[in-house]
């Protein structure tokens, strides 16, 4: 048992409403930052200026979308799972670009 787990496979703090709200605010923001970077790096059309606007102009629309995706989860754990899934996938895609040069 710890402050996070009750020893029976439950994580009451991580599954709380506060945790869900944090996932919606913070997790969604980090995921959005990674998505913005991803779009800017991979956008195939136009010059560098067009590519930075492709990533930047709809930044907050993605944030809003991820915010509600996290908030509409059943609990904090599911909200964080959703955000972490996004973060992991987007980090991988960004890493491919940076590693691939």
């Amino acid at each position: 048992m710890s402050v996070w787990s009750d020893g029976q496979g439950n994580w009451p703090r991580l599954n709380s409403t506060l945790s869900r709200v944090l996932a919606a605010l913070l997790g969604a923001l980090i995921a959005t930052v990674l998505l913005t970077l991803c779009i800017t790096l991979w956008w195939p059309f136009g010059d560098a200026v067009e590519q930075i606007f492709a990533g930047g102009v709809f930044f907050f629309v993605f944030w809003a979308g991820f915010f509600y995706w996290a908030l509409l989860a059943k609990g904090g754990l599911q909200a964080w799972r959703r955000m972490l899934l996004l973060m992991a996938s987007l980090t991988l895609i960004n890493a491919v670009h940076f590693v691939g040069g």
């Binding site: 913005t36 800017t40 560098a48 200026v49 990533g55 907050f60």
Partner: peptide
């Protein structure tokens, strides 16, 4: 929101396309 927050994400956009140089990104625009 774009007018207010684009400045906040501009360093990130500069990292992607202008090696993190915000001034260079601004100059390009």
């Amino acid at each position: 929101t774009i007018l207010g927050l684009l400045g906040l994400v501009s360093p990130l956009l500069a990292v992607a396309k202008f090696d993190g140089d915000v001034d260079k990104a601004v100059a390009a625009v």
